[in-house]
């Protein structure tokens, strides 16, 4: 459920970046306050483990398909919430940078969706409550399945909301919800079972390993206040950035407001430049008497917005777009050729 840059708006991306960045900052601070040096390499290597563990599959009975470890829950169980959140965030960052899984702008969303709910909600509020130290195997399974499911359901819901607020996808809230939640129910069941199986093995083989995590201080009754404060701050920050963007950029605010109101209209280019360009084109037009002229003129003066069923604009767009593309390709070849000859000489 990695969100991609292509599907989110800058506002949503920015807010979630702010949220994730403040969570990372918070976790780092928590860790710095009482860090056992030993855990620095442990966290890094466990992050790599989460990657590697995805190569190992097991058969899901009765389905023929296979499942594997997800990551969030097992990290939380082994490392405690703060260290697990940081580790997961680093896993997602590497995924975004190297595997183009998710994206740079969507990274904030992804860290929040996959990390926050697993590490700061599901683990402390469900897993730790359901499965205190020395619980039976059944309790362990139950706890890890329930917490994985809850974590993923919340994460999936958050994906739906972020996509919705971004308004790039045309999917309706209800249908997207119906698509995402059941899939993640299944994924949660599998991940929970896989986590429990691994934890059970470790409990038997090296019981002492699970102790340190169990002793680390929980986020005392969850720092909900801090989280909310962080979110608010992030929202304000994003709002400030957005309005700065809007003020430096003539039609940005209009655009943002229309966006929020749900209409899909795009702003008109500014008038002065248009008249200037209109004069310019009198002399430079290659196809002055093209049959689309009439329609476009009217469209131009009244509502030259993109969504209008306007053949002239589309046509100009296509011509101009193709030409630009050709420019880019020529540019690329020129650059490459230029660099090569430079290297040779």
């Amino acid at each position: 459920m990695h969100m991609a840059d292509a599907l989110i708006s800058p506002a949503v991306g920015g807010i979630m970046w702010g949220a994730s960045a403040s969570l990372i900052g918070y976790s780092c601070k928590k860790l710095k306050d009482n860090l056992d040096d030993r855990r620095i390499p442990l966290m890094g290597v466990l992050g790599a483990f989460v990657f590697a563990a995805q190569m190992i599959n097991f058969t899901i009975p009765g389905t023929g398909s296979s499942g594997h470890l997800g990551g969030g829950m097992i990290l939380a169980i082994l490392l405690g919430p703060h260290a697990a959140f940081l580790t997961l965030a680093s896993v997602l960052t590497v995924q975004a940078l190297f595997f183009a899984d998710g994206g740079l702008l969507a990274l904030g969303c992804n860290i929040f969706n996959l990390g926050f709910f697993a590490c700061f909600i599901a683990y402390p509020l469900i897993f730790r409550k359901m499965c205190p130290a020395n619980s039976t195997v059944n309790r362990l399974y139950a706890a890890s399945i329930v917490s994985a499911v809850v974590g993923l359901q919340l994460g999936a819901f958050s994906v739906v909301l972020e996509t919705l607020f971004s308004q790039i996808s045309a999917l309706r809230f209800s249908s997207f919800l119906l698509l995402m939640q059941p899939i993640h129910l299944a994924i949660g069941l599998v991940e929970g079972a896989a986590t429990a199986a691994v934890v059970q093995f470790v409990r038997q083989a090296r019981p002492e390993i699970l102790q340190p995590a169990a002793h680390t201080a929980l986020p005392a009754a969850l720092p909900l206040r801090n989280v909310i404060a962080g979110l608010l701050f992030a929202a304000l920050l994003a709002g400030a950035i957005l309005s700065w963007f809007a003020s430096t950029h003539p039609d940005g605010l209009e655009w943002a407001m229309e966006r929020a109101a749900g209409t899909a209209e795009l702003p008109t280019p500014t008038g002065r430049i248009q008249t200037f360009l209109a004069e310019l084109q009198q002399r430079t037009a290659l196809l002055p008497d093209y049959s689309f002229t009439g329609t476009v003129d009217s469209a131009q003066e009244e509502t030259p917005s993109w969504p209008a069923p306007d053949a002239g604009t589309s046509f100009s767009g296509i011509i101009g777009g193709s030409l630009t593309l050709i420019f880019v390709v020529v540019f690329a070849y020129a650059l490459r050729f230029g660099c090569r000859t430079q290297q040779r000489s």
Binding site: D37, R38, I40, P41, L42, G44, V45, L46, A48, F49, A52, A53, I56, N57, F58, T59, P61, S66, L69, I74, L78, A193, A194, A196, A197, V198, Q200, F201, V202, A205, R206, I209
Partner: peptide, 26 residues
């Protein structure tokens, strides 16, 4: 690919090895 128990043992061994490695790195 084996059932859940085998999976747990298999992945768990990788995990233990990983943690021992972390000790050595430390």
């Amino acid at each position: 690919t084996g059932g859940l128990r085998i999976y747990g043992a298999f992945t768990g061994s990788l995990l233990l090895r990983t943690m021992e490695r972390a000790e050595r790195i430390y």
